[in-house]
């Protein structure tokens, strides 16, 4: 079979490979190269070594502040989204009537795009804050909590759907056996349910973490970094470095490389950590 198929390599893969090269491989390789260059357009590049990487931290503190803001945001949204989603999925797997209707409503915000979501919440939060004579762009903590609320509203339903599917797969026999052994509700949750749904916890924490770190649209629409770039997250900071300041394209590209390394490292560490807690049924 392998022999017959060898001749068909290009038939099966060529269109994907061309598109993949144009959209990903070449821009990626070129991007890594440009992070070591000073340039305005892609044709007048000059090798500057690690200069861009140093400038990313030394010219101003924006990138570092964006990193701190993003980390704070990611930790709080990771915990709140997963805790709420898990609690909700436990309620929805108790066999109550109308469970499907509830699930439909909770999942819905996830389909609305980030830009649209950002403006919806900007109007609501500004509406509430106007009662107190202030706006979202007045303080960075409003923007921070606004983003947390928005992310929770958007992601809880998605994670809940994944947890519901996992909880439905936990064998009732295990629960019954533990009841016979005299385990109380908390012990059943701690020693039976959570270990059994650990693969889903791995996935949901992975998805919330990487979505939080890569967040861009919601950040742009809700606060656009206001006030004074204090609510700027990493992705938005990189975007603004590229397109907001002439002569800093190389710095932007260097920031993007560091961003990639950070995202990849977090993904690897997180997967290894939660995978180690998974058990076989």
């Amino acid at each position: 079979m392998q022999k017959v198929l060898k001749k068909y390599f290009l038939v099966f893969t060529l269109p994907t490979l061309i598109a993949f090269a144009i959209a990903f491989v070449l821009p990626f390789v070129f991007g890594v190269y440009l992070s070591f260059c000073s340039f305005r357009t892609v044709s007048d590049t000059k090798w500057v070594g690690l200069d861009n990487y140093i400038k990313a931290f030394t010219v101003n503190k924006e990138f570092f502040n964006a990193l701190i803001f993003t980390v704070k945001f990611a930790i709080v949204s990771l915990l709140s989204i997963n805790v709420f989603a898990f609690l909700l999925s436990m309620v929805l797997t108790r066999g109550l009537k109308g469970t499907n209707l509830f699930r439909t409503v909770f999942f819905m915000p996830n389909l609305v795009g980030g830009i649209v979501l950002g403006y919806i919440w900007q109007c609501i939060i500004n509406g509430v804050l106007s009662k107190f004579g202030t706006t979202l762009s007045y303080s960075s903590s409003y923007g921070y909590w606004g983003l947390i609320i928005l992310m929770n509203w958007q992601m809880i339903g998605y994670m809940m759907v994944i947890y519901v599917a996992a909880l439905q797969n936990v064998s009732p026999d295990l629960i019954d056996a533990s009841k016979v052994d005299g385990a109380n509700a908390f012990q059943r949750l701690r020693y039976i349910t959570i270990p059994m749904v650990m693969p889903s916890i791995t996935i949901c924490t992975f998805l919330t973490l990487s979505n939080s770190f890569k967040l861009f649209d919601q950040n742009l629409a809700l606060t656009a970094g206001m006030p004074a770039k204090q609510t700027e997250m990493l992705a938005l900071n990189i975007y603004n470095t590229f397109y907001g300041r002439i002569g800093f394209e190389g710095v932007g590209q260097a920031k993007a490389v560091m961003f990639l390394i950070l995202v990849a490292a977090i993904a690897l560490i997180q997967l290894r950590f939660t995978r180690s807690k998974e058990v076989e049924a």
Binding site: F24, P27, F28, F216, A235, I238, G252, A256
Partner: peptide, 8 residues
């Protein structure tokens, strides 16, 4: 992340 390849 998209930012890595966005410019190029």
């Amino acid at each position: 992340p998209f930012q890595m390849v966005m410019f190029t």
